[in-house]
Design a protein around this nucleic acid. Structure first.
Lengths: 223, 223, 223, 223
DNA sequence: CATGAATGAGTTTTCATTCAT
DNA sequence: GATGAATGAAAACTCATTCAT
């Protein structure tokens, strides 16, 4: 539950993933320092450094040094520095979409489902503040093609969330005073903002912040 | 309502400002192409480019070319690229603080004053979207000293705004369910976020967006 | 007896030297034009140019052009232009200390040992006039840390030499009229000065100059 | 008797000197801070800065700031940065030549005259250590023409000094074991070297150092 | 699989000097 | 006499990427 956590899926652009999942020994043997395989180590190092210093301020050299490998190794696993950033995004997007789907699809009244989703995105954002910082500050560093791709996924997420609000508005439990689109942006603004002000050693736990922000959203939506 | 607007104060890093304030004609007459003096031209070009491409992705070369001057001229007026960024910040901070003071000090009930301030910051942010983008994406590019300075001014602004909410809470017109601090961050999250999604050619005018967002804030604060 | 001679040690700033000592073949085989490896070529070019034009007047561009490599290559081997200068110093200091130790530790009367050391430093200085010019004109260009390091080694050399004189003074074969410290500076003043006036095509061979200067020193020390 | 002292002759390349000597009021009225006229202030500032940082490391901007004038003023009095350096040299050379002439032409035995000259150059060098540092470290920074000029004056000085030694050798009071030329360089080597090791707060006064060094010279010349 | 030497275009910044006022 | 804005060329250094081994 540290600042940044690299998921357990190995991005291997040059290989298919399916066959490495099953046999543990298939993961590249090169695990030098600790037991973590090289690509994960690179991704973790890149995530931390990108969050700390920004994408442009982080050199490939720094990343490979932090990961304890050589440049050749990085370019063996990732096509470019850009690729590395894209992988970070991919991981976060996948995670958030999964969690939203889970909460949105629950068998509960709309109010509960929205509150659950709204609070959960806050908690997971705080638990991965590094990823969040990168996400909201470095998106424009992606090349146009990958940028498009990320934006598309982002939009799917936004629409899924908006659908929840519209559902509540149709049922009359949420006010229609404000367009659902705007409400989504209102809430996600505060989520983005978390990486600016939230400190793990502050007075509020992630869950408390999440409850407060979800509360504000639902209070604003009261008819 | 342009994207970016450069103020009318000439930055003169090597001198105190006081003596140039008196004589209006002291502003360098060197205005080459158009009638705008060089420092303003540089500031305007930098603002636009920083917003479009980010601070790190914008080279000094690009800035001086856009401003139609030479690199030497830039370094004659500004100590560094960093300085240029700082000037953008200083201008925005000054403007926002002034406007907040105006609304907060008005002779009106607290609800009206908060709504006025909350809506106004949205309108002026939209009217200076470039400045806003820079503000919320590039602050960490400032050197540590200037960073401190900007953060301090930022904090003053935050506290002024928080005081409004607390005033309403004390009077009983705003709910105390959420700490005022968190409410401020909630609102400013959505303000920061504007530069991500707001498009001038979209369906909503700046004022409409402002009214909606201020409305959401006040609805969330209803007891 | 060339103007400058670059040693056979490869500077590898990013690694400890110990592991490259073992395997002779570890010296990079990349020797483009002639057979000399890149770092040596750079060091030789830098030495010549620093001596001819001074440190500040020599651009990194000139060095890499003279060495027939690119700037990137230089910065691959040396951390900075400063580093390059430091390597020149390190080589000279090592050489001089070795030779002094050799003469000072010989099994001979003190007069012969001092004369031998005093003459030898003249010969080797003349044989490496470039290094000497750099040494005595560019030391102050080193950053403070490296400056300290060089000064410390320099002092060790000075003290070793002074010890010889003091030994002779204690034995009564050298006059005690002048403090040994001052005598050392007197002699080394003339050694430094060599790079100002000595010309290889002049009437005196290095050995002749050395004999004369050592003679002056010993005559001045006669009781 | 501070580190560096600028003589009382105003270098005015663009004007004749003769008419400003007589009438005090003819000295340019621009004496801003203290009462010293601008050119002297510039020369003094340049001398100090050149000695401290070297010629190349000292910018024209630093000089004018230290002197409390503007760049325009500097270029009004001196044709270039190079000119400034040349003026420093000219002053030192003039002074040393005068003093040597004085001692060499005295009505005394050759031994006394040589000792006097040898000691005096040490004292005046120590009293103007800044000038000396500049002299021995920055001569090669002069353009070829001025370089030639300085070298010529330097040679005159050297020859004057050598003549003293040869006179003694002819009279049989100095040994002829070493060529007079070499003896001169031996002594001046130690004079140059002074700026490397002499510290005003050290144990020896300038006169003591001078006596010791002159003593060493004369002892070395004993037949 | 992995290395690390090498590239080359790029970066920000400095600075002596000029010139209109 | 003096100003200081502006120039333009050059400075040191960085860095993502490639490729022979």
């Amino acid at each position: 539950m540290g600042r940044s956590s690299v998921g357990n899926r190995v991005p291997r652009p040059t290989r298919t993933e399916s066959d490495t999942e099953r046999r543990v020994a298939a993961v590249p043997r090169t695990t030098d320092g600790d037991g973590t395989p090289v690509p994960q180590r690179l991704l973790a190092a890149a995530t931390r450094l990108f969050a700390e210093q920004g994408y442009d301020r982080t050199s490939v050299q720094e990343i490979v040094e932090a990961a304890g490998v050589t440049k050749g190794a990085l370019y063996h696993y990732f096509g470019s520095k850009d690729d590395l950033l894209h992988e970070v995004y991919a991981r976060v997007l996948r995670l958030q979409q999964e969690r939203l789907d889970h909460f949105a699809g629950a068998d509960e009244p709309i109010e509960k489902r929205l509150r659950g989703a709204a609070a959960d995105v806050v908690v997971t954002t705080i638990e991965n503040l590094d990823d969040a910082s990168i996400f909201f500050r470095s998106m424009h560093h992606l090349g146009p093609e990958k940028n498009k791709q990320v934006r598309a996924e982002r939009r799917r997420y936004h629409e899924r969330f908006r659908a929840l609000i519209e559902e509540g508005q149709r049922e009359g439990v949420f006010s229609t005073a404000t367009p659902a689109d705007l409400v989504v942006d209102y809430h996600f603004g505060s989520v983005h903002h978390l990486s600016t002000w939230y400190r793990p050693d502050g007075p509020l736990s992630p869950q408390e912040v999440a409850d407060h922000l979800a509360d504000l959203l639902l209070r604003a939506l009261r008819p």
